[in-house]
Design a protein around this nucleic acid. Structure first.
Lengths: 255, 255
DNA sequence: GTTGACCCTGACCGTGCGTCAGGGTTGAAG
DNA sequence: CTTCAACCCTGACGCACGGTCAGGGTCAAC
């Protein structure tokens, strides 16, 4: 007769594993001796080895019992099924590896290389890291909300930074990021931007902008005021012309 | 502001997943509104998307926080590490598939094809399925206890079944498997076997036989008696000659 | 008698959520 | 004003396969 540790050693598993198989009913509980110890016969060793043979091949414990007592035909079917599952799992892990490999650099984490290049250009122009991060996060969001928007964004950004006047405005915005909303510099900047916006009315006004406005507002109270005032003025200009159809931007993303 | 289901939809995950990330501290808990609902800003959406990007690439949740805030150098190291883990896992599953493929037929489950061939020969000779199973289980055990023993077993078995007299004895043993131990047929068989054994004294007597004896005894009381009596007689013959050195077989495997 | 090696049961841990239970909130429709 | 669907909340169990205590008996040898 074998003790549990002898049995376990015979099959090359741990004592815990044997007890686990008892618990899930895979291996029947043997007789106990006078002191309550489990005592195993040779048949138990055979059973355990057969169980391990299947388990080592990746058969889930829950299916081992059925598989062991199956007729050859269903046995083969079960094996094919399990093999299919293993293959799917491998494919999935392979896909994971592919993605891991693609995630080499930092911002490359989520964004295509061309977008990262623009962000780096901004850094080179002296834009604060904080604002660069904000632009990055905005891109991350837009990639989800409107995956086709990247090329246009890249074009627009590059065009802006090719133009010294616009670049100056952008950097000015960057500088007031930490100002209080009522700082006079913010007021002056609003006027400048408003003048610029009048020239470019209608360029961009998709509903997704709501989320971006929100993102910007979250990161700087000064910018929040800036956006609010600009939207308000723009709306007044629009209602003065069309009457309706323009309530959206302002009511947009408020709590 | 976004509700939890809107946030989840934005990132393409379930509500449960978002709450799980809160629970494990991967995503900070947002503010609550008057009725206790979570309210998310756009930054949360960005964070969640970044988390999912890593999770979808197979980065364990427990490591995502560290990976996201790592410097490029450690980031690369972590990724390499994770990739190695994925590769190991894939190798393991591939090994599982290999074994699954090897487990085509029933008894092939554990035994080499040559052994299965002998078992099939026994079936062809009219040996009961029960005895064939017993032989199979004995082989399974021996494969663990003495992996090199298969060729000899195959040779011995085939030699036995090539000899009609020995085959007859074997089949006779098979027939009494379900007899009571005191059945007269068992007694007669014992005499026959004893006579045969005298001719072949010393052929086999390794210690591993203990386990096999035990396996046999477990499966049939008649065989148990058969083995006991034969061992007893053999021992008497041996002590009559050598005096000591033979207590082993009998005391062997009793509880 | 004491020491070290075994044995017992019971229970928690980790992975990444799915799912159920039991109960509040909201917003639109009747 | 009620009702109904569709949300929201917390808390807890489940899964696969054991690892790893905790707390306490037993056996064999010295």
């Amino acid at each position: 007769m074998l003790t549990i540790s002898q049995l376990a050693a015979t099959a090359g598993v741990t004592v815990r594993t044997v007890r686990h198989y008892h618990q899930v009913g895979l291996l029947p509980e043997p007789e106990r001796d006078a002191s309550g110890y489990r005592r195993y016969g040779a048949q138990a060793a055979v059973d355990l080895i057969r169980i391990r043979t299947l388990a080592d091949a990746g058969v889930p414990l829950a299916r081992i019992d059925a598989v062991m007592h199956a007729e050859p035909a269903e046995f083969a079917a079960a094996m094919a099924d399990i093999d299919g599952e293993l293959r799917r799992r491998i494919d999935q892990l392979t896909e994971h590896r592919r993605r891991i490999a693609a995630l080499s650099g930092g911002e490359r984490l989520v964004l295509p290389a061309e977008v990262v290049a623009v962000l780096d250009r901004m850094r080179g122009l002296g834009v604060s890291e904080r604002t660069v991060r904000l632009e990055r996060d905005a891109r991350i969001l837009m990639q989800i909300l409107d995956p086709g928007s990247a090329p246009r964004w890249i074009r627009d950004k590059n065009a802006r930074f090719d133009d010294p006047a616009k670049t100056r405005l952008y950097l000015a915005c960057d500088e007031v990021i930490d100002c209080a909303p009522d700082d006079p510099r913010v007021g002056r900047l609003i006027d400048e931007l408003d003048a610029w916006q009048i020239e470019h009315e209608g360029d961009i006004s998709q509903p997704e902008l709501k989320v971006l406005d929100s993102l910007i507002a979250e990161s700087s109270p000064a910018w929040q005021r800036l956006i609010e005032v600009l939207n308000h003025r723009a709306e007044r200009r629009r209602t003065a012309v069309s009457g309706t159809a323009a309530r959206r931007r302002v009511a947009s993303f408020d709590p």
